[in-house]
Every structure is written in C-alpha cells, then in structure tokens.
Simulated scan of single mutants.
Amino acid sequence: MPTVTISHTVTLPDPVKIARYLKAPELGPRVLFFSGGSALRDLSRELVRYTHNSVHLITPFDSGGSSAKLRATFNMLAVGDLRNRLMALADRTLHGNPQIYDLFAHRLPKDLPQDDLKARLDALVDGSDPLVGAVPDPMRKIIRSHLKFFRKAMEGTNFNLRGASIGNLILAGGFFNYNRQIDPVIYMFTMLVKARGTVRPIINKDLTLVSEMADGTLLAGQHLLTGKETGPITQPVKRVYLSKSQKDLRPVEVNVRRKVKELIRSAELVCYPMGSFYSSLLANLLPKGVGDAVSKAQCPKVFVPNPAGDPEQFGLGLGDSVRRLLEALRASCVKPRPTQSLLNFVLLDKGRGYQAPLALNQIEAMGIKVIEADLASTANAPYFDERAVIELLLSVA
C-alpha cells in the first residue's frame, strides 16, 4: 500500500482533538511512554479518560524495596513498577477492581516475626484473609492460585516477608507458574482488571543497572543511583549500562524483543517523560535496537524533562539532558540515525526552573523544537498538572 508524509500545523492544546478523545477514548491514539517508576502513576490514571491505547514500556531493573528481595532470592526481573502501572490503568468502575487494587497495594507488616507473616500468607492462599475474601470470583481464585505458587517457591529459601508487597508476590507467583515468563501474567491481569493500555517490560531478563560516576566509581544497582535508600549522589553520572549481576559488573549487550520493537514502531506518539532521568528513562533505552525502532516510528517524538530537582541529574543542565537522551538513543541503534528521527520536540513549563545551562538555542539548532507551555499544577505543586501534560501531548499526536 502507498504511504505519504503529511505536515500540518496544530494548536496546543487542540480543543477539537481533546474533545474527540474524551468522547471516545477507546479510539484514542497509541501514545508510547518509556517509563519506569511512580512519576507517571497519576498521569496514567488521568490518561485513560483520553485513550485506552497507550503503551507503557517499563524498566525491570529496580533493586530496592520489595522488588530487591524477590530479585535476590529468585533471580527474576523486578515486578513492582509493572504492578503499579497495571493498577494505574485499571478500570476503577469495574466490579471488584477497588478490592483488587487494595489487595495489590497492601504490604505485609515490617514488625512481625517471619512465622506470623507466613501464617498471614497462608490465610491469603486459602481465602480466609478478608483482603482476598473481598475480591469477587474468578479473580479471587486466580489470585489465590498465584499466591500458592509463590508460597511453594518460597519454601527452602531465606525470603523475608517483612514489608513485602502482596501485589508483587501475586505477580511473582504467576511468573513461576508460567515458566518464568512475565508476559502471560501481565496479559491475564490486563484482561481481568480491564487495564486501559498495554504494559510491557522493555526486556524480560534479570539484569543490573550500573552507573559509572565521574571519578570512575561504579554503583551497582538502581537503588544506589536514585538515592532513596543511601542518600543522593554527590557527583555527576558519566554513563549507565547493564551488567549480569551486582557482583559481575562487566557490561552486557541485550537486544530488545521483536514484540517490543513492533509496539514502538506502531506508536502514534513517542514520549520520553518526566521521571528519574537515568534509572527510569535512559535505562529503558539501553537494549540494542530501541533507537532503531524509534527512528522507524512515523510519528512525533517528545521529551518532557524534569524541572530542577531530580537527584540523578546532579550537574546536568537541560541542554546536557537533551544531549544525553540523544546519545542513549543513538547508542542503541545498529546504524546511524538522524536526530529528527529520534527527537522532535522538548516540552517545557514556561513558569518553572530548569537546571542550567539551558542551551535552548543549541537545542533548536539541532532541529528540535522547544515548546513552552503552562504545565505546573496549582493544586499539587511542585508537580506538573497531569491533564495539561496529556492534552499538550495528545494535541501533537
């Protein structure tokens, strides 16, 4: 079939487009986000009002909290961010979904003995715990079955249940049930909670995110870079890469999966969103082939940078962030790709401060258009207004 390229001018935000999407979100655009943790949780909840066809590629390298314990014990990818995004996209009006959300969000106490926590897990498995008892069938039976698989896998290990996320345990149980494949588990829960979008890990492998700092020091694990458990970094990041484990820090090359390439290539808008710059955004671009797939997507590509304050961007100005993003995309390409095929727009809040040097003239000299708009939230400062960001992005699509 013949194809043509059409250029046109749009109003930002475009009230006609937005009204159309709000009226029929099931026909909304395929907006793809390279995302990781919680920065897009609230945006994703709002996004389902506009489109049911968004795609969320999630980093599976989380090495902190409940996910860290699962990964250390079972040599598996992190499932916590996958769980968060599925629940953010779930149809809250569906019968039983509020109870499912409560169950998935619940964490076991941190101050109880392991034997008491095992007894609590057993109650969840047999259905006598009120949290799982509140979930209607058939979801209750599926959840209990997955928890039973996890309970069996836990036997003979030193897995500590203190503070464990029940949602993570459910997904882990499904992972073991499906021969250590996460996609069937995601698909099942997408159908059951009517998640209004597609969620996939960028790769289905147990790998470690390594950060090489300016002085050559290596930080093995996402948790050391984010600073949530160890305090913020005190020098700039030189580069990030993937390694086999937290002990073997030699770089490994991994290829993005064919099905993920297809999701990227079919996008109607590619968004590099706000969030932890290295551990959430750039980590998603490390597998080989991501940049090639982006370049082949015949759609706009938009970067929504963090305002000043992201601890991972120590010493990194706005212009530097744009250059680092392009470097990461090009590094994941098999062959050279022009800038215009990888990044077209940088969306800024005109009232917020960004870390200097801004280098706006240099950004535009690369053929990248800088768009300044009102993105700040008056009700939830200093964060962005999710609705404003969504409506601007969808107007570009």
Rank of each mutant, 00 (worst) to 15 (best):
residue 170 I to M: 04
residue 180 R to A: 09
residue 192 L to C: 04
residue 273 P to W: 08
residue 268 E to Q: 15
residue 185 V to P: 09
residue 202 I to R: 10
residue 190 T to E: 12
residue 175 F to R: 09
residue 229 E to V: 13
residue 223 H to E: 10
residue 165 S to H: 07
residue 162 R to M: 02
residue 209 L to Q: 00
residue 216 G to D: 09
residue 171 L to R: 03
residue 212 E to P: 05
residue 235 Q to W: 01
residue 198 T to N: 01
residue 275 G to F: 12
residue 247 K to D: 15
residue 252 V to P: 05
residue 193 V to W: 04
residue 253 E to Q: 14
residue 256 V to T: 15
residue 256 V to A: 14
residue 275 G to H: 09
residue 237 V to M: 06
residue 160 N to V: 02
residue 207 L to F: 10
residue 182 I to N: 08
residue 173 G to K: 07
residue 274 M to W: 04
residue 259 K to P: 10
residue 226 T to H: 00
residue 244 K to G: 02
residue 155 E to F: 03
residue 157 T to I: 03
residue 154 M to E: 09
residue 189 F to Q: 02
residue 214 A to F: 00
residue 247 K to N: 15
residue 222 Q to I: 04
residue 277 F to I: 08
residue 246 Q to C: 10
residue 208 T to G: 04
residue 212 E to D: 07
residue 271 C to K: 02
residue 215 D to I: 05
residue 212 E to W: 05
residue 196 R to D: 02
residue 246 Q to P: 01
residue 176 F to W: 13
residue 185 V to S: 10
residue 260 V to A: 05
residue 256 V to N: 07
residue 152 K to V: 11
residue 255 N to T: 14
residue 266 S to V: 00
residue 190 T to P: 06
residue 158 N to W: 03
residue 153 A to G: 02
residue 157 T to M: 12
residue 277 F to A: 13
residue 227 G to Y: 08
residue 266 S to H: 11
residue 151 R to L: 02
residue 211 S to A: 15
residue 250 R to W: 08
residue 276 S to V: 03
residue 262 E to S: 14
residue 247 K to A: 12
residue 264 I to V: 15
residue 152 K to I: 13
residue 267 A to T: 07
residue 169 L to A: 05
